[in-house]
Amino acid sequence: MVRLDNLVKQFDDVRAVDGVSFEVRSGEVFGLLGPNGAGKTTTIRMLTTLAAITAGSAEVAGINVSRDPIAVKQNIGLAPQGLNLEIELSAYENLEFHGRLHRMRKRDRETRIRELLEFSELWDKRDVQVQKFSGGMKRRLLIARAIMHRPRVLFLDEPTVGLDPQIRRRVWEMIMALKSEGITILVTTHYIEEADFLCDRVGIMNRGRLVALDTPENLKNQTGRFAVVCSRSNGCNARFFDGREEAVQHASTVEGDVTVRQTNLEDVFIALTGEVIRD
């Protein structure tokens, strides 16, 4: 459904995306995980036609992004990281504007707006100006807007950044509901739990490159199921083991405070890059 072949984005003297290739299958939730500045957003901007591709090629819904951007735009929805809603307009008017941009007919527009405002639990607030909305409400409206015209591929750029844990859950539920409708979703995140919870497969990005790609389970298995993590004061490196007993045994040989726990995607990232995903 989405295919990148050696994609490159060069800004003056910075190579933001450096030869990235991967494929997103139809109907899956595909995550791009990495720290800020890894090139995730730039990748999405190229796929959604907002940024020109320096080298390589990309296809979305079988359409070449550089060759036919208008056709690509008909098939995609984007919820960007910034909450770029029309704050002077109401929730209803925001969706109406979007529907009109995508040339939806009046009747279809009206039915769809109601359906989506109910789905995002904003129907009661439909006539309220968006500038009076909370961050969580804006984020829900942003996702509703992105799927208003029933795109085949949905791009979500950091969909829960800056949200409270409880509201983050609510957004995750929305995304899972969309997956069950068969929409292909490409989501970027620098939250470990988000990638783990939402994604069928995860591509790990660092410094413009894709450093690993697999299911969260496989990525963790390849690193080792159990991690022995040292306390900060201890300063030793984390080590990974396939079995719990080996991990415990190793932990007993280390001086100072250590924790034995299941490996998470951040451990995978650290093992691959030697760096930490910082917020």
Binding site: T48, T49, L50, I70, A71, K73, Q74, I76, L78, P80, G82, N84, L85, E86, I87, H98, L101, H102, R103, R145
Partner: peptide, 14 residues
């Protein structure tokens, strides 16, 4: 500032 132009640029309006 608001980046609302992005919504229009990712729509199929020329």
């Amino acid at each position: 500032y608001y980046k609302t132009i992005e919504e229009i640029l990712v729509s199929p309006v020329s």
